Computed example of a mutant assay.
Amino acid sequence: MPATFKMSNKGVGQLLKSQMIQADMLYRAEEIAKAAQALAPVGSPARDPHPGHYKGSFEVSTTTRGGRRRDRATATVTNTAYYARWVEYGTEKVAAHHVLLRAAQAGGGD
């Protein structure tokens, strides 16, 4: 007789919010943050009034109320430098570096 499986939506929901999943999301986000720090551009002290500020401004946060429905564990990597958006996406005068994009593509997976 073949095995049968009946999925429990409540059980899956509990799994997605579990400490185990949250810990894994945190681990992956920390790996992405490490990769982003390695990729981050640093200006020369002669031309940049705050060299290394962008590189040192990566932060990781986690929650169990993430996702579209706020029903799962997530982790987020952010950069708190006020100009982080311009480093990531570029401007009309400066090319985009895509630091977080490249870090997310390179890190976090096993």
Rank of each mutant, 00 (worst) to 15 (best):
G67W: 10
A81P: 07
Q105W: 03
H97V: 01
S44Q: 12
P2C: 07
P49K: 06
A73Y: 13
P41M: 01
P2R: 15
A81C: 11
D110V: 07
Q105P: 01
A103H: 02
A40L: 02
S8H: 07
R72C: 02
D110L: 10
A46N: 08
W86A: 14
R85H: 14
Y83D: 05
R69E: 09
M20Q: 13
H50A: 14
M1F: 12
L16S: 12
G11N: 11
G43D: 02
I21M: 08
G67D: 08
N79R: 05
A35G: 02
T91L: 03
R28Y: 08
M1S: 15
P45E: 04
K93F: 01
D24E: 15
L100V: 08
A38W: 00
A81K: 08
P51T: 02
Y89H: 12
T76V: 14
H97Y: 02
R70Q: 13
S44E: 06
E88F: 00
P45C: 06
D110Y: 08
A35V: 04
A36W: 00
P45Q: 09
Q14W: 08
L100G: 08
T80S: 15
L101E: 10
M7Q: 14
A38C: 04
Q14N: 14
V77E: 01
G52F: 00
Q14I: 08
A29V: 12
R68C: 04
R28A: 12
L15P: 08
T63Y: 02
K34I: 02
A84K: 03
S8Q: 08
A38M: 05
G90P: 04
